[in-house]
């Protein structure tokens, strides 16, 4: 399985990771090697096998509908690189 540069660009964009043009070739090579390695799974017969999403042999526990959290805007904003008037702030988004 080989990933071309356009594919790498596309997934990097989906993952929001900036890639410099000069790194693209090397990265595409590395990722292709990894995909070639995992390709071996195609030889395993998995007909009729249910995908296993969790090893925990239990079902989802439910919580009571009570307010137990919140009311801590200072703590929520404490680590923010940028905040103003009780809000997080980011470069303006134009819709």
């Amino acid at each position: 399985m080989s990933l071309d540069k356009a594919t790498v660009r596309n997934i990097a964009n989906l993952a929001r990771i900036e890639i410099r043009d000069e790194d693209l070739d090397h990265l595409a090579g590395e990722l292709s090697n990894i995909m070639t390695f995992v390709e071996q799974l195609s030889e395993v017969n998995t007909d009729g096998i249910e995908p296993m999403t969790s090893v925990a042999a239990m079902t989802l526990p439910l919580r009571k509908d009570v307010i137990t959290d919140g009311g801590q805007p200072e703590a929520v904003l404490l680590n923010a690189p940028e905040a103003e008037d009780g809000f997080f702030t980011v470069p303006k988004v134009v819709e």
Partner: peptide, 21 residues
């Protein structure tokens, strides 16, 4: 009363980031 996956309140119109876990 509380959110789908957290215990913070859901009421409309609160001060910003006060109903956040």
């Amino acid at each position: 009363h509380s959110k789908l996956f957290s215990g913070a309140a859901t009421e409309f119109g609160a001060e910003p980031n006060t109903q956040v876990s």
